[in-house]
Amino acid sequence: MMTSRRLLQLAVIVVALAYPIVTSGSPVWQRLGALVLLAAISASAWNIVGGYAGQVSVGHAVFFGIGAYAAVVAFVHLDLPPILGAPIGMLLSVAVAVVVGVPTLRLSGHYFSMATIAVGELVRVLSSTSDWLGGAQGLGGPAMPRTVFDLSFVSAMPYYYIFLAVLTGLLGLTWWIERSRMGFYLRAIKDSERAARSLGVSAGRYKLHAYMLSAAFTSLAGSLYLCMFGFIDPESGFGILLSVKMVVMAALGGAGQLFGPLIGALILVPLEELSNSLLGGQGAGITFVVYGAIIVIIARFLPSGLLSLLERRPHPGTKAAPANPNPASGHAD
């Protein structure tokens, strides 16, 4: 049992590391790997507040856009390599998360989601009126790489490894939170905020901390996006579709689970890219008909996400009870 699990882990690590080398003959597949990882970073970042704390933000593009714009502004206005804007974007995102989070995190359920949608749209419209941010036309990064620090490569391989490193760090941090006291409190808040409060958990504070952390990493994903694509405009930075995609990716894989967003990204990003490559040229929007239908089918049969498939297997007879690591509870009745 232990060894087969170890083997599986090893295999995953080998595949993850070797992927861009194996696919080096095909820039498209290589790039697809990088795109999956980038999507997984933002969805995993969303997962901290949306999955673990159960606060379904549908406005996370705000942070993604701040990250992307911070990077491009570093280049356009300060003549620095875009990636140097990333830490500034993260700090700014944390600050915005406090400003937005303090009033909205008090809202329950759908109200919070709707408020985050409104904030997202508000920021999108405002960004398109700012000449400093390039207005609606958007801003471009370095047209041609000046130094390697511009992170502008022809091959997707460097992006792949950078994204892999960031994702690993983020998942490591999430794993640590999961097992820390904060993770315990977040789960309690998600189950029942009232109960958690009555036990003396400062729900507001923990939710806000999760929101801030989530914002910082979403912002980093935005900065990385800018380095790879070299262009940002209000729609691709702050668009509502971007926010919804983060939610959908995490929900599809399994929100509130460490690898849920990654699984979601592994399914959705290739699905989107491949269906567009195969069907998009015909120009009838079949791409999204297929894409939408597959999401509907997964939601219909696995409403808790794909990872719920694995959960059920060890407990065939029982009613979807969460795995209990404590053997003592086995003979309770």
Partner: peptide, 10 residues
Amino acid sequence: MLAQILGTFG
């Protein structure tokens, strides 16, 4: 609740 967003968005 997330399943609602997933399903109806699809």
